[in-house]
Amino acid sequence: MELAVDKDLENATLTVTATFAYPIEKVWALYADPRKLERWWGPPTYPATVVRHELTPGGVVHYYMTSPEGEQFHGVWHVKTVDEPTGFTVDDFFADAEGAPAEGMPTVHMDYRFESTPDGTRMVCVSSYDSLEDLQKTLDMGMEEGLVGSMGQMEAVLAEG
């Protein structure tokens, strides 16, 4: 897997491009199958647990990551569009245990696109923020490092078959 992260501060976006030596259906399953999603979503030391998974327009995906100290950090996707297996869009936000948005935390508008290539699949995710301040808040929290660490776990899940 090759991975690149591009920060565009002027437009308050973070773009992740990854290439995989696996067919598009396998890469799609990393998001569509909640058991696969929880094996890589979240940094290696903050494993994810998916408690609700509705990857359909209008659906909700609710997950939490558990810190090494046992603290839970909840997040929710409000699913906007789904075009299996070529893409989906969600609004992702930090939440409380019931799934309500956490006060003072930004919402990230994520647009995932998958395309077949001669060697496998190319994935591009553009995360758009409402303001540069919102993007900077997540960067200050370690979003970029967490993203790279999380996505670094995808290859092992894909290799399992």
Rank of each mutant, 00 (worst) to 15 (best):
V61E: 00
V61A: 03
S127M: 13
S150Y: 15
A102M: 07
R39W: 10
S67D: 03
W41A: 00
M151T: 06
A100S: 15
K36L: 07
V27S: 01
M154E: 06
T86W: 03
F93N: 02
A95W: 13
T89D: 14
W40T: 09
G161F: 15
P101E: 03
G142Y: 12
D92Y: 12
Y46C: 01
V51R: 09
Q136K: 15
G161C: 10
F20K: 00
F20A: 01
N11A: 06
K36R: 13
A21P: 13
M154R: 09
T89Y: 14
R35V: 15
N11R: 11
V27I: 15
T107I: 09
A95N: 10
Q72E: 13
P44T: 05
M123Q: 07
T17M: 10
T117M: 05
D33Q: 10
E144Y: 06
Q153P: 13
Y64T: 08
V60I: 11
E103K: 06
T19N: 02
P34Y: 03
D92K: 09
L132R: 12
K80N: 11
M123L: 14
E155F: 05
Y22K: 08
M65N: 04
L14V: 08
T107L: 02
A100H: 13
A18M: 11
E84C: 08
T66H: 02
R52Y: 13
T17P: 08
A100Q: 14
E145R: 07
D134Q: 08
D111L: 15
T66I: 01
G120T: 06
L147T: 12
Y112P: 09
L14C: 02
M123T: 08
V157M: 01
